[in-house]
Design a protein around this nucleic acid. Sequence first.
DNA 1: CACCCGATTATCT
DNA 2: GATAATCGGGTGT
Length: 194
Amino acid sequence: MRLLERSFYQRETVEVAHDLLGKIVVRQYYHHLLAGRIVETEAYTIDDEASHSHRGQTHANRAMFGPVGHAYIYFIYGNHYCLNAVARNQNHEAGGVLIRALEPINGIEFMKQFRGITDIHNLTNGPGKLAQALHITKALYGIDLTQKGELYIVDGQTIPEKDICAAPRIGISKATDVLWRFYICDNPFVSRKS
DNA sequence: CACCCGATTATCT
DNA sequence: GATAATCGGGTGT
């Protein structure tokens, strides 16, 4: 499995969100490798009212203004971390792709332990859930996802266009018209149906 | 320093 | 399907 190159992330954010489906998130946790296939994503651009980057750079969102291919991680609702891959083309100042759901591939027993449950379909089918299952916290903020390390993304199968669904993003109140949520249709690990 | 809110989840009914 | 839990960050005083 090859690492995704920096150039992969240096394209339109929405395109990268679409193309990240089928790619593999790898978490090296001490000597263990936890991995999952991306089955659901959402794009957030700087022009987008729903994006954390829309009101300009702050200390918390600085990663989204930094080099593409790095991780933007945020904490929400008092409990949950969420993982984004920084992605944008050269015309834009900021942008990110929220990783919303994974299909567990490797290290499933550790994921169960980190999540405190045994149901495999409830392990990584949500952005906060997958962060907990892979032990992703702010300690990994800004990490380069194009280099082997504690967290990175490698190539996987290409998903046929007919198997990709687009829908409005979840949990936002602004810019609900655009279909910037992508998921693999009929995949049982997607956070929810549309 | 007080206030408000949120790219969610678990746990009810 | 409804709602409580929970707390860091942004904003304004």
